[in-house]
Nucleic acid binder design. Sequence first.
DNA 1: GTCTATAATTCGATAGAC
DNA 2: GTCTATCGAATTATAGAC
Lengths: 186, 186
Amino acid sequence: MTTARRSDATRAAILDAARERFAADGYERATIRAIARDAGIDPSMVMRYYGNKEGLFAAATTYELELPALGGLPARHVGAALVTHFLERWERDDVLTGLLRVAVTNEAGAERMRQLFTDQLLPVAAGVCPDPADAPRRAGLAASQILGMALTRYIVALGPVAGMTREEIVAWLGPTVQRYLTAEAP
Amino acid sequence: MTTARRSDATRAAILDAARERFAADGYERATIRAIARDAGIDPSMVMRYYGNKEGLFAAATTYELELPALGGLPARHVGAALVTHFLERWERDDVLTGLLRVAVTNEAGAERMRQLFTDQLLPVAAGVCPDPADAPRRAGLAASQILGMALTRYIVALGPVAGMTREEIVAWLGPTVQRYLTAEAP
DNA sequence: GTCTATAATTCGATAGAC
DNA sequence: GTCTATCGAATTATAGAC
């Protein structure tokens, strides 16, 4: 269908623009008008396709962490592998940065972040934890360090943290995440 | 002066209300009107005393971390001491939570957070680092874990992290911060 | 499918009476 | 010092022409 194809292109352009704006400005300051301008269409089209601003946000922030299966790795490499993966994922595009920005000021964004944790990080962590009952807490600790790095490096941009290389960060954070996931409880 | 005393009480009420609103809603959604309503005064008084919204934010978020001197501690207790102090500071009031919220969506807030890091955390960290040249990076790493915990526990409120006790958090995060500040570079 | 026009709010900020 | 009244701008969202 020709019409469907054209509609799809418009929808995709809207979502791309929305992801960028939400990532750069957060939920409140990312206006539908600005998103429509970036996408080269009229603001009313956004409303037509996504109903309202929250619907647009929900559609724009479906996100796959694409976490690798850690089961095949030597247990002592799990921490470094996770940190490396997240650094690459963050720097590939800015969706996760945007999600973090929105999670801080918008309850729907926070809920989306909690889902991401439960649906995607938790299962992977559970696969390498010594005791399955501890998996949620261990995964939560890992998330605190990983999200804290994203916060200080990409959003608040603390000078010394933003200036580190990927390799340095993996070398420092890898053992931390490793310990949270697999070491004996303190 | 009677007038001055009355003015001071009004100013203090405004700042208290502003701190709460900024902490709960972030910069954009915390409106001057709502802050004034909470303080029981007219919105125009806020403008009169603080000029504009940014001035109000600046006045409401001057903040002292009140970090203890770590020099007197045995080196191996530094990490736990810092984590304990931050947990107490966060839960005593919500100013730091608010600052974090605003730092994520507002550039002035981010700059304030960077100042807090440079002026208050960095000097304390430098006092316990083996090599002073490494102090900024080590302090930055510590900040990434400490702020990450604040983010996941108090703002995003990941279930497992919010459910941990203070003691558990200190037991897990203390060694991490300890290693970032004092251990040999990896 | 796309856009114009506009309704209905809400905001920050100002002017001025008392 | 405090409040009333209001301006001008910006927002989300809707109605309807083409």
